[in-house]
Write a protein that binds this DNA or RNA. Structure first.
Length: 525
DNA sequence: CGCATTTGACCCGCGC
DNA sequence: GCGCGGGTCAAATGCG
């Protein structure tokens, strides 16, 4: 980039010379000199371009070699002690280890090539977040090759999950083959989590994804058991969530998400995925998560924030919950500025409303472009209207579902969830209602203020965000945010029209009974 | 019968 | 080192 800028500057020189020469003499001889000069500069320019391309090519090669080198290193050291493992980890974190930096200039140049945040993030957030970003990368890798096709779906699922979301249980027991997956599994990564609190009458909050319950456990200090789910939309999807009712208020469901979807998401799921993705992005951007709960995000002051202003997402807090960097979105708190803050988030157990920015921030979290409306709509339908439950996404979720991608029809979703996946199943509302709702929303000063604030905050940080995203996640979310910002204004009215206040039954998703409640609604434990 | 859920056992990390 | 608690596995069970 800098090179391009230099080039463009260089290009301007001739014209300047031309101007001055015009003033001084009109003889053709001087013009010829100028032309010659121009030609020389063009030559220089082309040479620089060549050099630039050459360097870029070398960087690419180095990058590829670097990857291969890492793999080999990890295989070699697989059985080494933890300190060696740490070295490996460090090597994965660009710019994090001085030893790595000293290894060779190639890697150094590679780092230079990377975005600033890459380094910054790694330095500030440490392993967990770095791995978080990594998991994002490996998600796609996984699809390509990661898993043997001969393996049973269950095994694939398990390995992928270990791979990306948690420290594997079995690894210590099973053979350490030294392949990438095992190496990854050794990383005691504490992935970022996103916790969502919402009022939900159903067993779980319908987030648009397809989940399968794989365990239930009674957590200490909570009479209600915690249910564990994993995403089943893709056999190798590492995303998991656990759902638990708030002991203080049984109507509140706390859902915690962890991991990154490695498959396209239905529009309905994209809303939550986008939101959580952005939330985690915020988490990264804030860099300084505290060990104290109820950390109000926007008020966070960190070195990173200077470079990358925080998103103003209301009712959002960051903490290190159980060693996991966790960001909590509270959809239960009635908000400070308006009812629309329901779309926002806050922290639990002591929500700290952030006032005016909320609603829009959520809008911005929605998927880019055309899916914005539907995403938001879904989000609203299930988290505002329908129910009150809290969900927690751990980590990030891939937000790549193109608007034209076929909608995934979860086979296991009960009828009520149809609305989630097929817009045609959405309840219909009279145009009067829609118009009224639209008017109400768009005319609400709080909404307008929030929208303006959110857009300005996003646009204002645009450069920093766009240039500083370090991981794929960061890139994705930044891009989403920017897209959201750019489309927010034009789509606001459309969104408002899409708002369906209602009336739709609170969606409890396909997941089985939660918190000890049986499918029949009986409390079991 | 196939699939999802339930549930006890197990593993692992962490704090004391 | 030990116990506790979170998280996962996998056999048993239930349901459509």
């Amino acid at each position: 980039m800098a090179t391009n800028q230099e080039l463009s500057n260089t290009k301007e020189e001739p014209s300047l010379i031309l101007d001055s020469s015009k003033n001084k003499a009109s003889e053709s001889g001087e013009m010829d000199e100028v032309r010659e000069e121009n030609g020389r500069l063009k030559l220089v320019l082309s040479n620089m371009m060549k050099d630039y391309k050459t360097l870029q090519q070398r960087i690419d090669n180095i990058s590829a070699d670097h990857h291969q080198h890492e793999k080999n290193n990890r295989n070699d050291k697989d059985t080494a002690d933890s300190s060696h493992e740490e070295d490996d980890l460090v090597s994965l974190s660009l710019g994090r280890s001085s030893s790595l930096e000293a290894k060779n200039k190639d890697q150094l140049s590679l780092k230079v090539k990377k975005n600033d945040e890459d380094d910054r993030d790694n330095l500030d957030h440490g392993l967990a977040l770095r791995l978080d970003g990594r998991s994002y990368e490996f998600s796609s890798e996984h699809d390509d090759s990661g898993v043997s096709r001969n393996q049973s779906p269950r095994k694939i699922e398990g390995e992928a999950a270990n791979d990306q979301t948690r420290e594997p249980r079995k690894d210590a027991k099973t053979s350490r083959s030294g392949d990438d997956e095992n190496v990854l599994q050794q990383h005691p990564a504490k992935k970022a989590r996103v916790s969502v609190r919402a009022i939900c009458s159903g067993p779980t909050m319908n987030d648009g994804c397809q989940w399968r319950k794989y365990g239930q456990k009674k957590a200490k200090g909570n009479p209600c058991p915690r249910a564990y789910y994993r995403c089943t939309m893709s056999p190798s999807c590492p995303v998991r969530k656990h759902v638990q009712r708030c002991p203080e208020n049984m109507s509140i469901l706390i859902t915690t998400y962890e991991g990154t979807h490695n498959h396209p998401l239905p529009p309905a799921a994209t809303a939550m995925a986008s939101t959580t993705c952005a939330a985690v992005s915020m988490l990264k951007a804030s860099s300084t998560s505290t060990s104290q709960p109820s950390f109000s995000f926007p008020s966070t002051t960190s070195t990173n924030m200077i470079n990358s202003p925080p998103l103003y997402v209301p009712n959002t807090t960051v903490s290190t919950f159980q060693s996991h960097p966790t960001i909590t979105l509270d959809l239960t708190t009635p908000s400070a500025s308006s009812r629309y803050n329901k779309y926002s988030s806050s922290f639990f157990p002591t929500p700290q409303p952030i006032s005016s920015y909320s609603p829009v921030a959520c809008l911005n979290f929605s998927a880019p472009s055309s899916s914005l409306s539907s995403s938001f709509e879904h989000w609203r339908n299930h988290n505002v209207v329908s129910s009150s439950s809290t969900s927690t996404y751990c980590g990030t979720q891939l937000v790549t579902f193109p608007s034209k991608t076929p909608i995934y029809q979860p086979h296991s979703y009960p009828t009520p969830n149809k609305n989630t996946y097929d817009p045609t199943h959405q309840p219909h509302f009279s145009t009067e209602k829609i118009a009224a709702a639209t008017k109400e929303i768009t005319s609400n000063p709080s909404f307008q203020n929030a929208l303006a604030a959110a857009i300005s905050s996003i646009v204002g940080r645009g450069g920093g965000v766009a240039e500083s995203k370090e991981s794929h996640l960061g890139a994705a979310s930044a891009s989403n945010l920017m897209n959201g910002a750019s489309t927010a204004v034009s789509s606001i009215s459309r969104q408002a029209e899409n708002l369906k206040f209602e009336l739709s039954p609170l969606a409890s998703s396909s997941e089985g009974p939660l918190d000890g409640f049986t499918k029949k609604g009986e409390y079991k434990k």
